[in-house]
């Protein structure tokens, strides 16, 4: 007979053991020192499936302390079921306070968005990254992409962008638009929409990007240049929501979700759930908006 005691288990603060946290911390510091470069890290298994935010959790749980206020969003929303599950996990493992209020959070984990509201110097944002290698679409082998990054040899990437332009009249990369960080490394900003890409550049907050399954993490420090790849005559553009207002708040100038209530009725709602709440209350927070070139 097995005593049930055998299966009892207590967990460390923030779940991950201290030795692994320390390793991840060392790697985060190096990632800050080499902006946009992908640092390999151990990436221990988590009780969350690979591809569901394990990398984000590694970074968040290595950073978090008892005084932090934690916010987590998925597709811009605090309400997304996976965000709910991860929030519950972080709360159980740290007893930290959690919030939906972007301004109140000290540590924000996100999948596929950077909040509309400008993040400040006292905030750290952790992005869940499915595929950290921006060159994967042009070179499938890691040992080759490593060399390309080392030599800043991005010719294949430029050719791919040019081909996209020739075929479609524009660079067709949607979310995860490739960027150059501090004039050196080409990096994927995780699949955030182009709308959010300009907000990575010269921002007051620290950005940590972590890909658990691929075991790589990279950073964009505060006040660091992040430039979307573009040609002199084919400029980077964000998604356009021309003449569109939010059906829930009447607000505009924000990334919108396209919602179908039936086959024929389409409406738009502001994607960032906390931003939407604030717009509805008439407390629209400060934003940094990008103007598409004419």
């Amino acid at each position: 007979m097995i005593a049930t005691r055998k299966f009892e288990h207590t967990y460390n603060f923030a779940f991950i053991d201290e030795r692994t946290k320390r390793e991840i911390r060392r790697k985060i510091l190096k990632a800050i020192a080499i902006p946009g470069y992908q640092v390999p890290y151990s990436s221990p298994e988590m009780p969350i499936a690979r591809g569901w935010g394990t990398g984000g959790l590694h970074a968040s749980l290595s950073i978090i302390g008892p005084d932090d206020v934690f916010k987590i969003i998925d597709q811009g929303s605090d309400a997304s079921v996976n965000a709910c599950n991860l929030r519950d996990f972080v709360r159980r493992m740290t007893s930290c306070r959690t919030t939906f209020d972007t301004a109140e959070a000290t540590l924000i984990q996100t999948r596929h968005r950077k909040p509309e509201e400008i993040l400040t110097e006292r905030q750290i944002i952790v992005f869940q990254v499915p595929q950290p290698e921006p060159l994967r679409s042009v070179e499938r082998y890691e040992f080759k992409t490593r060399i390309m990054h080392a030599e800043a040899d991005y010719a294949k990437m430029w050719v791919a962008l040019y081909e996209s332009y020739v075929k479609f009249g524009a660079i067709m990369n949607g979310a995860g638009y490739p960027v150059r960080v501090n004039g050196r490394y080409i990096m994927t900003p995780s699949p955030i929409p182009r709308w959010d890409v300009p907000n990575l550049s010269m921002a007051p907050c620290l950005h940590v990007f972590s890909a658990g399954r691929e075991k790589r993490l990279h950073c964009v420090p505060p006040f660091t240049r992040v430039e979307p790849l573009e040609f002199e005559d084919v400029k980077f553009r964000v998604e356009e929501f021309r003449e569109i207002v939010c059906a829930a708040s009447g607000g505009d100038r924000a990334f919108m979700d396209e919602i179908y209530e039936s086959e024929s009725t389409r409406k738009f709602v502001i994607n960032d759930s906390d931003f939407l709440d604030k717009v509805r209350l008439g407390q629209r927070p400060p934003q940094r908006l990008f103007q598409n070139p004419v």
Binding site: E18, L29, I32, I63, G65, I124, P221
Partner: peptide
């Protein structure tokens, strides 16, 4: 304290490394 002192001190280092 292996857990909490190292976490606080890491945050100090993190902030300092991010803002030379």
């Amino acid at each position: 304290h292996e857990i909490f002192d190292s976490q606080r001190h890491f945050r100090t280092l993190l902030d300092a490394m991010a803002r030379p």
